[in-house]
């Protein structure tokens, strides 16, 4: 039994529309799972259901062996972090203060120096330590995303001593990142997955997804089309069906970049 997250007949309706329909999945512990699909397929909704943010209309999410709705928010926060799509902030918090928010909720027992070293390490891993004292509101979209990544890393690090079986949810984490930071963020997540962290990411770049993920879930119109390894899932006929595109090569190409 190596599933970290399991869903049974998961459905979510809103405003009379069915956004996620009858999804039954197993997401393996310590694996990097990518959710892919066309715009409006329900990727982000599925991610929000899996992270416990939304309550399903039907079915349930089993997280670490218990129904996620039954886990109080403070306990859930020890076991999973979520990196949202970068958003605006109305108050001038610094990048360091944002990273600290990952610790404030669950790390009250830690000493001041422990907390500050967790925050700094997270900022370093997300390559934003040089922005620590910059006002978040003045950062670029990509820098903001990296600050939120740092916050998620800080939260995971804080929760690890209490709950070692953890998951990280990433919603289009590389949407506004340059190539170098796309690679370094995904490789950091990959490294954490090797250490036992379960990573679930919504990604648009199929080639990047295929090169980095263990499992790929392809969804379309709220339903799971296929799941498994990227090469199994991303067949020409499924790509044509879901995205309306044709694969012009007869095999899936190797990803051409790596960090210098």
């Amino acid at each position: 039994m190596s599933a970290m997250i399991e869903t049974r007949g998961l459905s979510y309706n809103r405003g009379g529309r069915s956004l996620v329909r009858d999804v039954s999945l197993e997401i393996g512990k310590g694996l990097f799972t990518v959710i892919a699909g066309p715009n409006g397929a329900g990727k982000s909704t599925l991610l929000r259901l899996l992270s416990g943010e939304l309550s399903p209309t039907d079915g349930e999410v089993i997280f670490n062996g218990s129904p996620i709705r039954a886990i109080p928010s403070w306990r859930l926060a020890h076991a999973r972090a979520v990196m949202p799509q970068a958003s605006d902030l109305s108050f001038p918090f610094t990048a360091l203060e944002i990273a600290n928010l990952g610790i404030e909720g669950i790390g009250r027992g830690l000493s001041r120096s422990e907390r500050s070293s967790i925050a700094l390490e997270a900022l370093e891993r997300a390559d934003v330590v040089h922005l620590a004292h910059r006002n978040y509101q003045t950062l670029s979209g990509g820098e903001r995303q990296r600050v939120h990544f740092a916050r998620a890393l800080a939260q995971l690090k804080t929760g690890r001593s209490v709950e070692p079986r953890q998951a990280l949810f990433l919603d289009e984490p590389i949407a506004s990142l340059d190539l170098k930071h796309q690679l370094s963020l995904l490789q950091e997540a990959r490294r954490l997955a090797h250490g036992g962290l379960t990573v679930v990411a919504v990604l648009h770049d199929l080639q990047l997804a295929a090169s980095i993920c263990d499992d790929l879930v392809l969804i379309n119109a709220g339903e799971v089309v296929a799941c498994g390894s990227a090469s199994e899932v991303l067949t020409p006929s499924r790509l044509r069906g879901a995205f309306g595109v044709r694969l012009t090569l007869d095999h899936w190409p190797r990803f051409p970049w790596s960090l210098a």
């Binding site: 929000r48 992270s51 416990g52 943010e53 109080p72 928010s73 403070w74 306990r75 859930l76 926060a77 020890h78 999973r80 972090a81 979520v82 949202p84 958003s87 902030l89 109305s90 108050f91 918090f93 203060e97 944002i98 928010l101 990952g102 404030e104 909720g105 669950i106 939260q155």
Partner: peptide
């Protein structure tokens, strides 16, 4: 205070961080 700090990221984010929004 801590809850309000988290809330300034958004309600969903405050929930993710472990607060009872």
């Amino acid at each position: 205070a801590r809850g309000l700090n988290a809330l300034s990221l958004g309600e969903a984010e405050a929930f993710h961080l472990g607060f009872s929004v």
